[in-house]
Design a binder for these strands. Structure first.
Length: 268
DNA sequence: ACCCCTGTTCGGCG
DNA sequence: CCGCCGAACAGGGG
């Protein structure tokens, strides 16, 4: 059994599953109102407004997604730890964890999240919800540049770099495995304080971040099996996992509150 | 049974 | 006041 391809690329993969419904009308909605997944959103207005609307566009920013519908309706989705999306047959019957289903004539757009660390947000209005524009540049955009990275690192000089790379306000869409992959490529010790990274290390961090984000998005798939065998991800959870560079046994510890794997030989 | 977990938020504390 | 860290959230899987 493969681990689902997570984070930035997983979001992109799931967003595309729902894109099958673009240009089509939503006939009816099924949802589990009162569940934690809908915290802060109006679950009465959601089905009332969305019924009859067409799905028009979708967009992803980091781990967040925004679906735009006709009649000034917007749906924000976050997958949390266990969120999934699929386009199922129109006679789909929602199970316990299928918290939101948008039925169209030819398919059902399903949002599933067992642990409910994710979130569904409904917004009715002419423009996108205020929370959508948070000012954080996408890593694959030109706004994520060396200057931005410098300023962000300097803003968190005391935090271990692993924790900084996990901050969504600077590294949009990066999660636990991508952070380890990035630091491994950049040959930086995850516990090293961000403020102690030299110019050379910052250059490497910048390049590795762009590379991992771009490649993950390019090689997008339902699981991590399509990522190159030379990547750390295939070793980081395995007992006795080794560094793909020189076969050194990886070390593991909790850093920045997350399980972290690194190579003691090439990461300093 | 017990321990682990790809994310985010919040209260405590240094 | 700043900012880091652990706990909490909830459930499934090993």
């Amino acid at each position: 059994m493969f681990r689902a391809m997570p984070e930035l690329a997983e979001v992109e993969y799931f967003r595309r599953q729902w894109n099958a419904g673009i240009g089509h009308r939503v006939i009816k909605i099924a949802l589990h109102s009162g569940k934690r997944i809908f915290r802060g959103t109006n679950t009465r207005a959601l089905p009332e407004e969305l019924a009859g609307a067409h799905l028009l566009t979708s967009e992803a920013r980091g781990k967040r997604m925004l679906f735009r519908f006709s009649n000034e309706n917007w749906l924000g989705l976050h997958l949390g730890m266990s969120g999934k999306m699929q386009a199922a047959s129109p006679d789909f019957r929602p199970q316990k964890h299928d918290h939101l289903v948008l039925y169209q004539r030819e398919r059902a757009l399903v949002f599933t999240d067992a642990r409910q660390f994710g979130r569904v947000q409904f917004h009715h209005g002419k423009t996108a919800p205020t929370w959508w524009d948070n000012g954080v540049p996408e890593i694959v955009s030109a706004k994520f540049n060396r200057e931005f990275l410098d300023r962000f690192l300097d803003r968190h000089p005391k935090a271990p770099i692993k924790a900084v790379v996990l901050m969504q306000s600077g590294f949009s869409g990066i999660g636990n495995w991508m952070a380890d992959e990035i630091l491994w490529r950049a040959r930086i010790l995850p516990s090293k304080r961000a403020g102690r990274l030299g110019a050379g290390e910052r250059n490497e961090l910048f390049r590795a971040t762009r590379f991992v984000a771009r490649e993950s998005l390019r090689i997008i798939g339902p699981d991590d099996s399509t990522l190159p065998r030379t990547w750390l991800i295939h070793e980081r959870w395995r007992a006795g996992g080794i560094c793909p560079r020189h076969k050194t046994v990886l070390r593991r510890a909790t850093i920045g509150g997350r399980t972290t794997a690194w190579c003691p030989k090439c990461q300093r």
